[in-house]
Simulated assay, not measured.
Amino acid sequence: MKKIAVLGANGHTAQFVIDELISRGLEILPATRDGRLRRRDGSQTDCAAVDLTDASSIEGVLRNADAVINCAGPFLDTALQTARAAILSGIPYLDVTAEQAAAASLFTELDEQARKSGTTVVPAMGFFGGLADMLAAYAARGAGPVRSTDVAVALDSWHPTDGTRLTGKRNTHTRAVVKDGVLMPVEDTANRRWDFGPGFGDQEVALVPLSEIVLINRHISAHNVRSWMNLKPLSDLADTSTSPPVPTDSSGRSSQRFCVEIALEEAEGDYRRIRATGQDIYAVTAPLVVSACAMILEGRTTGLTGVRAPGEVFDPAAFFETVGPRLQIHTDA
């Protein structure tokens, strides 16, 4: 039985990740800052204690693990040292960051070391980042030169976790998009309209580039790559009185609905489109990152090592099959 270390195991998303790992017959090695694992049902058990500022502490947690999933944000403070410890331990590293700077730092700081050691490092393998990247990889199959890739996200609401709010305060880096083939700081922030189709319809969207920009830019050459989000969740996020997610079923999912659409432009006005819909952005992160982890451990990858975007490592069709019914995929690509 493969053993998966889960760092930040008391976090909201980590609880879904733990449940997903257990459901797939994988053994969990949870680690928290105080050495106590607190589950959604109120139960508590002892677990590994980890100091995420101490490399030797992280390495100790990973000593008996076959892979590590880092759920301990803000990832600007945890990703580099945890991924470095995973590389030294010779095990795959995955995280679920939405932070562009955190994902980019792994590519710039650790790619050469990871390649030399034959280790696979996959940042941002969650709802923000990895999902859009895999959808873009699906749309790009067999495509010619790509003029632009747009990611559009619609949420019917956003009840942020404490971790989301903490990350928002910590992440003061300037966001970037791809313009004329170059990753560069956002300049034009003008809103536009986006038709999300059934369920969400036509809505005004704002430019909100997250970690998917960094990922897509690694393997799809496009003149422009941008990401958009409808205004309702941004309003919820800006309102400090918006409550955290409220569970509405036995798995702990909230009622939140989402749609993520990729519009990949080959020739002018000639688009390939693919859309994913589902429930609860935090909950759906679990099958995304656990599927990726399992596929790496099973050798179901392209064979590439180093720090890689999901779309470089996994066949998109095979990947979405492993995620299962938590995502509904609609495509004309």
Rank of each mutant, 00 (worst) to 15 (best):
A124Q: 03
T189G: 02
S251V: 06
A124W: 01
N217Y: 09
S227A: 14
V151W: 09
N171V: 02
I262D: 01
W228P: 02
D249T: 06
G201I: 05
E187G: 08
T172S: 05
V177L: 07
L264E: 00
S255F: 03
N230R: 08
T189K: 10
G144V: 11
S255M: 13
H159K: 15
D156H: 08
V151S: 03
R192I: 10
D180L: 11
R257Q: 10
A190I: 05
H173V: 02
V205S: 06
S235I: 14
D239S: 09
W158C: 01
A206D: 11
A140S: 08
R147C: 05
E268G: 09
A222N: 14
S211R: 06
Y138I: 04
W158D: 07
H223P: 02
S148W: 13
K179G: 08
S254G: 15
F258H: 07
K232A: 07
S211Q: 14
S241Q: 07
A124I: 06
E261R: 12
L183A: 08
W228I: 00
V177K: 01
T248D: 04
L207K: 04
E266K: 14
E212V: 05
F128T: 07
E212R: 06
Y138Q: 06
V246Q: 15
F128C: 00
G201F: 09
P247V: 00
A154H: 01
I262G: 02
T161Y: 05
L264A: 08
N171Y: 04
G168K: 02
A137W: 00
V146N: 03
T248Y: 01
V214R: 02
T174Y: 08
F127P: 00
A140Q: 01
G269Y: 07
T167G: 10
R165D: 15
A139V: 13
A206K: 09
V182N: 04
R226C: 10
A263S: 10
H223D: 15
R192F: 09
V246P: 03
A176K: 12
A267T: 05
V205T: 07
V205W: 05
R193W: 07
A238I: 14
R193P: 07
G142T: 15
P245I: 06
V177A: 06
R257D: 01
L131F: 05
K232D: 08
V260L: 05
T167L: 01
N224D: 15
T248H: 03
V182I: 13
L234E: 04
E265T: 01
M229V: 12
F128Y: 06
R147Q: 06
N230Q: 08
G201Y: 00
P245E: 15
F196K: 00
R226S: 13
K232W: 02
H223F: 08
D156W: 00
N171K: 08
S241D: 10
K232C: 03
S221A: 06
T149W: 03
S241H: 11
L237V: 12
S148D: 11
S211G: 09
L231T: 09
R192Y: 12
S250R: 10
W228R: 02
N191Y: 13
T164N: 07
G130W: 04
H223Q: 13
M184R: 15
L135Y: 03
F196C: 08
E266W: 12
V178N: 04
V178Q: 04
T174S: 06
P209M: 08
H173F: 04
F127R: 02
S243I: 12
L237E: 11
V153M: 10
N224P: 10
D180C: 07
A263F: 11
K179E: 13
S251G: 06
I262V: 15
L166M: 14
A136C: 10
F196T: 03
